[in-house]
Design a protein around this nucleic acid. Structure first.
Lengths: 165, 165
DNA sequence: CAAGATTGATTTATCAATCTTT
DNA sequence: AAAGATTGATAAATCAATCTTG
């Protein structure tokens, strides 16, 4: 901690802006999604993953990994979606410790109806404001930081941000 | 909806990357904040706002506006923070419909102890990955999109994203 | 024992009134 | 009636066991 310098003015602005950006864009998009389709953000995410999977089916933990959820949240959420008829769970007969999650017909209908609306919202609240260069910048930023986070977690004890010499 | 085109490959990547970025950076930072200081993200946000306010005091709705929370969430959260001794509520005598939220000594101690740690986490999980140009890009993106969202909401009925002529 | 999964309890967030003051 | 605030009920996310299989 010792010698960690404060954030510069520009960093401060960038950090607060980044947070506001993330929060507000997400809020606008998910509010419209909810209003126009009845699906929550998490609902939509699960449905997209399943709809893009080979047989409309994934192991539960694959969804959890992709969405970045812990397993209990995943299980509870799948239970709610199952009650609404959007997905179905079935134990994998080959390997009974895995749970297969399958997109139902109703679930597929829901995601297919929702997708174009969602795209419209994303355009309206996000891409409409951006130049092609800015879109590229977003893509680059995401790649850079996510790459960094992936390695950051698997690094030595951490003498991070302090000079070790 | 009609003529809304699908997202291009690059837009698709940018949108998914943006979401992953926002989620993962936030997750890393708030997890470390919680672990090292015992404060949640929302706790920290309220404390920062109060610590930067003139008398360490704000009207409740000002916090709600700044944080983008609805009033019931705000009220519940303030109740929890008050129980922990971080803030104190007092009715404004001049205008009894407003509730003043005041930072307690304990609350100020908490934010002052947490701030440098938080800065370190933000550096480690975010700025460490970015060049100065990228920091500027983040700042610019946030400004652009937030400006757009501010006007978007106050616009005509919405013939958004469809050609009107 | 480790990994996948589920369950129940607790904590937060959201929703729908309600209350007060202007 | 409108705006600020609170309250109680519901829904969702997190936490701490537990269970099963390899």
């Amino acid at each position: 901690v010792a010698d960690t310098p404060w954030l510069s003015d520009e960093e401060q602005r960038a950090w607060r802006g980044f947070n506001q950006l993330a929060r507000q864009v997400t809020a606008h998009v998910t509010r419209e999604l909810q209003r126009t389709t009845g699906l929550s953000g998490p609902d939509y995410e699960v449905l997209v993953l399943l709809s893009e999977a080979p047989q409309g089916s994934l192991r539960a933990f694959e969804i959890g990994t992709a969405a970045g959820w812990e397993k209990s949240r995943l299980s509870h959420h799948l239970t709610r979606m199952e009650l609404r008829g959007l997905v179905r769970r079935q134990t994998c007969e080959a390997d009974p410790r895995y749970a297969d999650v399958v997109l139902t017909d109703e679930g597929r209908a829901a995601i297919e109806a929702a997708a174009p609306l969602h795209v419209e919202h994303v355009r309206r609240f996000f891409f409409a404001a951006l130049t092609p260069e800015q879109v590229a910048a977003v893509d680059g930023l995401a790649e850079t930081v996510l790459e960094h986070l992936a390695t950051e977690s698997t690094e030595p004890p951490t003498c991070s941000s302090t000079d070790c010499g």
